[in-house]
Design a protein around this nucleic acid. Structure first.
Lengths: 167, 167
DNA sequence: GCTAGTTAAATCGCACACGATTTGATCGTG
DNA sequence: CACGATCAAATCGTGTGCGATTTAACTAGC
């Protein structure tokens, strides 16, 4: 109880399993669980999105635009937590595929508005089946999914608030 | 109850909020929550790992090696869910930094074993503070972290099992 | 109304991820 | 022992992510 292992962290002092080296086991890292689950989702999405001809981040942009067309690059980035350095080339690829058009906003030429083409709108019909497939792959109930989604969202927002403060 | 909206998925039929287009709102996507939480973690880790001079995936490899030195590329990949096409260049960067050495296994020349250098072992002391900082950034209790980690791990393993079956 | 400061995208460089293929070593069967 | 199958890494090409910088457009203060 009155140990002298003062170098240990709060995490390792209590219940986390620990390797001989003193570092907690990787399986205990929440961040690794989030990291690897994200990749696992990506692998599930891949075959479904291949049929649509888009990648997962491209799909996320399209979901945004199906909900509200003509958003600026900044607005899309705000919702997806991505910067223009990631979005600009991604959206240019969507444009090259003929799914969207990029236009500078006449009222503020600094901004670029992204609009769906007819083909881009049409793709939503194909995409409607995707969420159901993903739902089935999780093997979770709707309640479990909602709770997990909420918990992760709370965590994400807290992490981003911390990152904000640190900056 | 006896609706005719047969094109809707199980998810959209029940409780998920829905945009005018018929696609569930992005905030409802569990996969997006995992995806964005992973990125949020990455941004928290960045300043901590910058001091160690490594990236997050490089850090994960080092955590593995601190737990068990001399693992093969395949064994590391099995634990991190990464393939040699990702790991090989990553580990070569660790080698270029002088943190690890790569050696072909004499007993089976197909395999490459990755071993920590003195400098690589020494880095663990610096890294011991990292998990505690991350823990603080989450603002969660240990119980909450453990439950979320377990839930995510279960989900990840189920997704990977599905991907396995589909292949 | 001109200039300094701010803002939105775009650009550049680097490091993952991952599908697909290649190279080299090992194994299994005849 | 031979040789095809299998296996572990490595290689190659494409597409994110993101820090840092640049460019162009707007805004505020004098």
């Amino acid at each position: 109880m009155t140990e002298t292992t003062t170098t240990k962290t709060a995490m390792t002092e209590t219940t986390m399993s620990e390797t001989p080296s003193g570092m907690p086991a990787l399986s205990d890292f929440l961040c690794f669980a989030a990291y690897s689950t994200g990749h696992a989702f990506n692998r599930i999405y891949k075959p479904l999105l291949d049929r649509l001809g888009v990648t997962y981040p491209q799909y996320l942009v399209l979901v945004q635009l199906w909900a509200e067309d003509g958003q600026t690059v900044g607005a899309l980035g705000g919702r997806l937590f991505l910067e223009s350095n990631t979005l600009t080339p991604l959206i240019k690829r969507l444009e090259a595929m003929g799914l969207v058009i990029r236009r500078r906003d006449p009222a503020d030429e600094r901004q670029v508005r992204v609009s769906l083409t007819e083909q881009g709108r049409a793709l939503e019909t194909q995409a409607l089946a995707v969420p159901g497939c993903i739902f089935a792959a999780t093997g979770l109930t709707l309640d479990e999914i909602q709770r997990l989604t909420r918990d992760l969202t709370v965590l994400r927002d807290r992490l981003m608030a911390t990152a904000e403060t640190a900056a």
